[in-house]
Design a protein around this nucleic acid. Structure first.
Length: 426
RNA sequence: GGAGAGAUGGCUGAGUGGUCGAAAGCGCUCCCCUGCUAAGGGAGUAAGGGUUAAAAGCCCUUCGAGGGUUCGAAUCCCUCUCUCUCCGCCA
């Protein structure tokens, strides 16, 4: 959510910024509504003040044994006027809130303007795509060739966009997850967290998936349904909801491994084969709570933490700044890390690292005490994949494949694989 | 799943219809005093919002959440959520 004060005072500037995203914010309509809110609120609060004053008067009169009948008569119609005013005010405020919850975050100045991923700008590249010396297979051919990746079995059980893994390949994903968690906790100062995978709607409102992206979520039935988390960002970031951190409590860095559930509404036809885009996948997520002036530096740092994983795995990657048309709803600036996939002959997203500044914090009332004034102020939140485990598995398979269909195990993963150095074809 | 108890400010904890945003203690901040010295005294100390260019001031809201009764609700009524205790069941 954007600062309502900013919306009131600089609606046109906000509209101009959001226009870079291709988002149309009707500033004039908002301001009209805002004027109405102002009038109604002033009026309603005045009536409330009257009610409070007269109630006090009646109380005093009664205590002194005076006749309160005339006082009661004087406030006879106050209740009705107050009810009407409060109702009208509530309606306008709800309308304003609906608009505000639907507004994306303001873009940082250095976010490139563009419309599609073609317009993202590369900021750095690490490693060189390896020349395998033979025709690279994709992860599907490799996994099925090993008999350890089974899309048919998954489809029988759950349908499209699921996978069953078996044997060393299943273990390899687990190894990747353990390796990532250990690296982030051991070397990058993150605290590991285990969190719920089912959350209330309020949590998704806090991080920005709701109300706008309802159709992307899986949810349970019932009167107050649970939502399946689309990313650990949701439960982890909401740890800061309604919290006022002590002045010296930030930054906080939290890492969590969770499965992620996405309906992939609107992505029909995209990546239908293989396990690039699944309804269920594993991810290690990095989240940071930082002081308001520290978030841009933290974004660089967090992106570096994710990159470290790929470097240790010796997977070639490039890092891009998402352009205004490709960046996510709540982010002010996002780096995507794209890993080289020989089977596809191109770089594919394996991590997305975003600075939300106070956008999520305002929605979930995540604050800290300002060290100077002692007053509460909104913190900044960041998150990034560190990294997507399913896609990391694909990357390892395709980059470490041998001509015979076997897969070498990256050195850093071997301890997690019981010393295994390769997955051998049968 | 059954029975019971509870939810108040950073914490402990009073408060069963009015002068209560809320006693007292602890903690914290500032000031003063000081060889009864890991002491004493004083003042301050919730959050959000409106009005304002901003501040001050003034006002509004909030005692788990929502609804109701009332001129007036922390206090009465209803619904819900959560926590704790006991029983049952269970990874």
């Amino acid at each position: 959510m954007l600062d309502p004060k900013l919306l009131r005072q600089s609606a046109a500037d906000v509209a101009a910024n959001l226009a870079r995203r291709g988002f149309d914010f009707d500033a004039d309509a908002y301001l009209v509504l805002e004027e109405r809110r102002k009038a109604l609120q002033v009026e309603t609060e005045q009536l409330q003040g009257e009610r409070n004053a007269s109630a006090k008067r009646i109380g005093k009169a009664k205590a002194q044994g005076e006749d309160i009948a005339p006082l009661l008569a004087a406030v006879k119609d106050l209740g009705e006027r107050l009810d009407a005013g409060e109702k009208a005010l509530q309606d306008v405020q709800a309308e304003l809130r609906d608009i505000e919850l639907g507004l994306p975050n303001l873009l940082a100045d250095d976010v490139p303007t563009g419309t599609t991923e073609e317009d993202n700008t590369e900021v750095r590249r690490w490693g060189e795509p390896v020349d395998l010396g033979f025709a690279a297979r994709d992860h599907i051919a490799l996994g099925e060739g090993l008999g350890q990746l089974d899309f048919d079995a998954a489809s029988k059980i759950s349908g499209a966009r699921f996978v069953v893994m078996k044997g060393p390949l299943a273990r390899l994903q687990r190894a990747l997850i353990q390796f990532m968690l250990d690296t982030h906790t051991g070397e990058h100062g993150y605290t590991e967290a285990y969190v719920p995978y089912l959350v209330k709607s309020q949590a998704l409102i806090g991080t920005g998936q709701l109300p706008k992206f309802e159709e992307d979520q899986f949810k349970t039935t019932g009167e107050s349904p649970f939502y399946l988390i689309p990313t650990a960002e949701v439960p982890v970031t909401n740890l800061a909801a309604d919290v006022i951190f002590d002045a010296d409590a930030l930054p906080q860095r939290i890492v969590a491994h969770t499965p992620c559930f996405r309906s992939e509404a609107g992505s029909h036809g995209q990546d239908t084969r293989g396990m690039i885009r699944q309804h269920q996948f594993e991810k290690v997520e990095l989240v940071q709570f930082v002081a308001p002036d520290a978030s841009m530096a933290a974004l660089e740092e967090l992106t570096g933490h994710a990159e470290t994983i790929l470097r240790k795995l010796e997977l070639p990657y490039r890092t891009v700044t998402l352009c205004s048309g490709d960046i996510g709803f709540g982010s002010t600036k996002t780096y995507d890390i794209e890993v080289w996939l020989p089977g596809q002959g191109r770089y594919r997203e394996i991590s997305s690292c975003s600075n939300y500044n106070d956008f999520q914090a305002r929605r979930m009332k995540a604050r800290r005490r300002n060290p100077g004034t002692g007053k509460p102020e909104l913190i900044h939140t960041l998150n990034g994949s560190g990294v997507a485990a399913g896609r990391a598995l694909i990357a390892v398979m395709e980059n470490y494949q041998r001509e015979d269909g076997g897969i070498r195990i990256p050195a850093v993963l071997q301890p997690y694989m019981g010393g295994l150095t390769a997955i051998e074809p049968v």
